[in-house]
Simulated scan of single mutants.
Amino acid sequence: MKSLNRLLPLLSLACLLAACSDSGPTEAQKKEAADEVSAIDLPEKTLETLFDVEEGFTLLSLKDFEVFNAKSKEPVEGKNWSETDGVLSCKGTPRGYLYSHESFGNCTIRLEYRFPESAEKNENPNTGFLFFITGENRIWPKCLEVQGKFAEMAHIKSNSKEIQLEVTDNEAAREKARRPIGEWNTIEVVCKDGALTSVLNGTQIATSKPSELKSGFFGIQSEGDAVEFRNIRVQKLTD
């Protein structure tokens, strides 16, 4: 019955469009059709398949990454990383990160992520996005990081003492753009000749000047908090 209920708005929409196919839909009919679509209670899997990847971008999934975990003295129950219906989930333990099979230089990476509402017990849940991972895997590798930590969302920093980085950051813009725990935030990072620019929910937050790192693997951190990611995609830029 639930499946039928979900289909009813679609059937209604099809009938409406068929009725006005001869002369073309009026503006009022277009609005009615749009309202019908927005009212449909689609299952999560269907919602995920509705995402259209922008031209020139490639969608990444869990199969496009390898897992690196820190050694832990505590037993770990189940897998830390999993993927269901296009949503990549991280339990947060053990600490570690995913790193891409492919190395990237000049590129744009876009994704959405959220800390589930259960993360509210931690006022500043943590994750991060690693760029230009170079050398051996360790906690933490030689790379640059765009922060996913709630209080520092989209801040750019060096994740290694070996790399000094000059960064410009707009805290006021972050406070205005950031969405609360439980909601999806969008991150875009443009990498150009070693310089990074981060954008949070459509607002530019930070920039960094080039360092010695200009290419490497892309990573996503596990740092003790449950977090979810979706629509991770990359566009390679021409030099």
Rank of each mutant, 00 (worst) to 15 (best):
T197N: 01
T186Q: 15
P180K: 07
P210A: 06
V190N: 11
C191V: 10
W184D: 07
L196N: 04
A195F: 09
S211E: 01
T203K: 14
F218D: 02
L200Y: 02
S215Y: 06
L213D: 10
S198H: 09
F217A: 12
S198M: 08
T207E: 10
P180W: 01
A195I: 09
S215Q: 13
F218N: 00
P210G: 10
P210E: 06
I181M: 10
N185V: 06
V189F: 03
T207H: 01
E212P: 03
K214D: 04
P180E: 14
V199T: 15
E188C: 01
G194D: 12
N201F: 12
G182K: 09
E188P: 01
G202D: 04
D193T: 04
T207P: 01
I181Y: 11
P180L: 08
G194I: 14
F217M: 14
G219L: 05
V189C: 02
F217L: 15
S208M: 00
G216T: 11
I181K: 09
V190A: 08
K214T: 13
G202K: 03
T197Y: 00
P210C: 04
A206K: 10
S208W: 00
I187N: 03
F217N: 12
A195P: 11
N201H: 08
G182Y: 06
T203D: 03
G182P: 04
G216L: 07
N201A: 14
N201K: 07
I205E: 13
K209P: 00
P210V: 06
E183Y: 04
A195D: 02
L196F: 04
S211M: 08
W184I: 11
K209L: 15
E188K: 11
G182S: 11
T207F: 02
V190S: 03
C191M: 07
E183M: 12
T197M: 05
N185S: 05
E188V: 00
L196R: 03
I181Q: 04
A195S: 14
V199R: 08
A195N: 05
K192P: 00
N185W: 06
G202H: 11
A206R: 11
V190K: 14
G194Y: 12
F217E: 13
E183F: 05
Q204S: 07
G202V: 01
F218Y: 13
F218Q: 00
K209F: 11
L196K: 00
N185A: 13
W184L: 05
G182V: 06
E212F: 12
E188H: 02
Q204N: 09
L213E: 14
T186Y: 00
